[in-house]
Design a protein around this nucleic acid. Structure first.
Lengths: 302, 302
DNA sequence: CCCATGCTTTTTATATGCAAAGAACAGGGT
DNA sequence: ACCCTGTTCTTTGCATATAAAAAGCATGGG
């Protein structure tokens, strides 16, 4: 009735720990393992029992020792280490953002449950989350309306994003030199410069860097609502990468250049330059997104 | 297993309709009734059966006639016309905002279910909503952390609110004279002037007017995220009224005056005046809220 | 052919059941 | 006194069950 993803993830975690242990060495205490993996001792004990059953551990009384080194095939596959809930969330987003349905489509919990092979409980728990993302809208006592990943959606997101990021960027500029964010930003700057040199082959590393830059900026506001909103941007951004593969290298290069200007303005505490660089970059990002959305609307994927 | 709040609400709705009917008159068609009350025909049919059972309606074949006028006691009490879900949501918010728990308190779904007399299913469906409000935070596989209605909470809300409302107000100013929002605003202005005259006795009507003014402004942005955020403000505002009863009259008067300045600036399309009035009003509102929160934190309610 | 109503099928709202995971308690060793 | 393991008790994650409500289909009258 309940999956055992936590068990499997912890099992894999323990396997990894065992890997760096000498044969015959005894394991840390249950409490310590539990803390390291952020799970309860109960789970650790179940894992230990499992490891003993396959002969990786042996125990004398209360002491457990490594009796053979774990092999890669001892581990559970990654697909099984995520809770049903997380899996459904991910698959649902993929399904929606891959364009399987268009604006106006009515989503019924019962149908989705069948489609994803879970119960309606899980579906009903997740739909409000996508409402928060602005993707769907509730009809009381009835189905959910899919609003679509439309130009309007992108524009509304970017309208808010611009306000938030401008404010965050300004607040970044007045933080002390030795704040965590500033140290972070200097690292990110270095990574940008490094990536710029090898952009021809490493352009696919850019999205991750992009996300980290913007998140670092947003985090400085210390405002739970602004941070929360960044999850929406992040979601959209993450999945946009799925469709928009054309010209990826050029776009990465252009964005990288804009980022560097932006970062220089930030580290230079030049408010005017910050505003300008921020606006310019978001404008580019917005039109990239819009272009990609419009392209997809005229020729939906097979 | 499922409440019948929809039935009861529709039943009351039909009673009200019957009230304005002549004795012996025949009712509208089932379809029409269903549409009027925004429920399914199935529900209407069940209601009709109920009304026949208590002798309010009589039927010959397919025709239903009013056979006696409904009395007030025929109606279901209002408490029974709301779904379990809605009731829990309301009671939970009241419970939290009335200060029954402090920041740092751990909420467990099981306990809440017992406390509110429902199943954990409902509770689990609602907690994410309060997370969206910024009131609680999730600990995976464990309890929820109540973050408290603290000064930080108020400040973070107002930081965002200011950005959104300034932008909305500016976009309001460029709408055409005959737009729905402008007509709306002129009505609201009239109500403000009327209320100003009778503020001594009618000050308790102010909160409703306040909400309508700000919502009218926010609606003009046509941005789902901004509108969505206004629900949080609204919630806080609504419940703030529960604690903050002292000096209510003075505060209503002060706010009313600020509103009128604000509205004049808006209707005058004077961008600079709008900015100033908006900032000024939000500043006052924020400090009222902060004062009330700080007061409550030093002397929590019995 | 358009709308009625009657009847059937599907979906939603909510409670309950149960395995997995977490938390609390208890004795024992250092 | 602390930390460790064994044990028990509670809570969470998820599926299922069921009444209420919605949606769909059939039939019949103007």
């Amino acid at each position: 009735m309940k999956g055992n993803a936590v068990y499997k993830r912890s099992y894999n975690g323990c396997l990894a720990m065992c890997g760096s242990l000498q044969l015959g060495a005894c394991l840390p205490s249950e409490n310590e393992l539990a803390q390291q993996l952020s799970v309860s001792r109960t789970t650790i004990r179940t894992v230990m029992t499992g490891l003993e059953a396959v002969g990786i551990l042996s125990r004398e009384g209360a002491i457990r020792r490594l009796s053979r080194h774990p092999q890669p095939e001892d581990a559970f596959p990654d697909t099984q280490t995520q809770s049903t809930s997380a899996t459904v969330e991910r698959r649902f987003l993929e399904w929606i953002l891959d364009g399987n349905i268009g604006p106006g489509y009515l989503l019924t919990a019962a149908e989705l449950a069948r489609q994803f092979g879970t119960s309606t409980t899980i579906i009903r728990e997740h739909l409000p989350h996508f409402q928060h993302f602005g993707l769907i809208e509730r009809r009381p006592n009835s189905a959910w309306l899919f609003k679509g990943v439309t130009p309007a959606f992108a524009n509304e997101i970017y309208e808010v994003r611009e306000m938030f990021e401008l404010r965050a960027a300004r607040s970044f500029a007045v933080l002390p030199d030795d704040s965590r964010s500033w140290r972070h930003m200097r690292m990110i700057e270095a990574e940008h410069r490094a990536l710029l040199k090898s952009i021809d082959k490493d352009y696919s590393l850019f999205p991750n860097l992009d996300e980290r830059l913007h998140r670092t900026i947003h985090e400085t506001t210390d405002n739970r609502f602004i941070k929360d909103f960044y999850d929406i941007i992040s979601m959209l951004f993450h999945y946009n990468a799925r469709w928009d593969v054309e010209d990826e290298k050029q776009r990465a290069f252009a964005a990288l250049t804009e980022h560097i200007t932006y970062i220089e303005a930030l580290l230079g505490r030049d408010l005017k330059a910050i505003d300008q660089a921020c606006r310019q970059h978001l404008k580019t990002a917005r039109s990239n997104l819009l272009r990609s959305i419009e392209l997809r609307m005229t020729m939906p994927p097979a």
